[in-house]
Write a protein that binds this DNA or RNA. Structure first.
Lengths: 67, 67
DNA sequence: CTTTTATGTAAAGCAAGATTGACTATCATC
DNA sequence: GATGATAGTCAATCTTGCTTTACATAAAAG
């Protein structure tokens, strides 16, 4: 899964720490998700979606289309 | 997180096993998600979304609205 | 030059997602 | 009554999301 987190965060002028606080996770979690180390849980994805006022599908992008 | 998986699956006339096969997970995973034992990972949520042709937000519902 | 802020990354550990295998109950049908 | 399909659940196991702590770098500010 790729994501547009870094771009969106920059657009809002938020630091990783600031976003992490809004989401209730650690800064390292935000960084890890941005750098693609792993995907967020579904509940966290919903919180991110809410944070940017965008549907999940506009933030996270499938890489492996169905065949 | 609540979800409408059971209803949607019934509407399509699919067994848990059939849906599991489509999703590439075990029948027990489908059952566990339906009975609310845990939430699916984000990639799996995307596959489910794709399977039913509905956005994630129409299948999974937040229980804890932002205060 | 020193301090602060933002970021990258790594180790270690806990919690949650997800697996397989097995056993059970129910219902339909042969 | 036996058989097969569906579904609920438990135990054991493995993977992954997320944590804290810590250290390193670069840029900006004092």
């Amino acid at each position: 899964m790729k994501n547009r987190l870094r771009v969106l965060r920059a657009e809002h002028g938020w630091s990783q720490q600031a976003l992490a606080d809004k989401l209730g996770v650690s800064r390292q979690s935000v960084n890890a998700i941005e750098t693609g180390k792993y995907d967020p849980s579904l509940p966290l994805a919903f919180r991110i979606s809410e944070c940017f006022g965008l549907p999940i599908e506009d933030i996270f992008l499938r890489e492996e289309p169905s065949s």
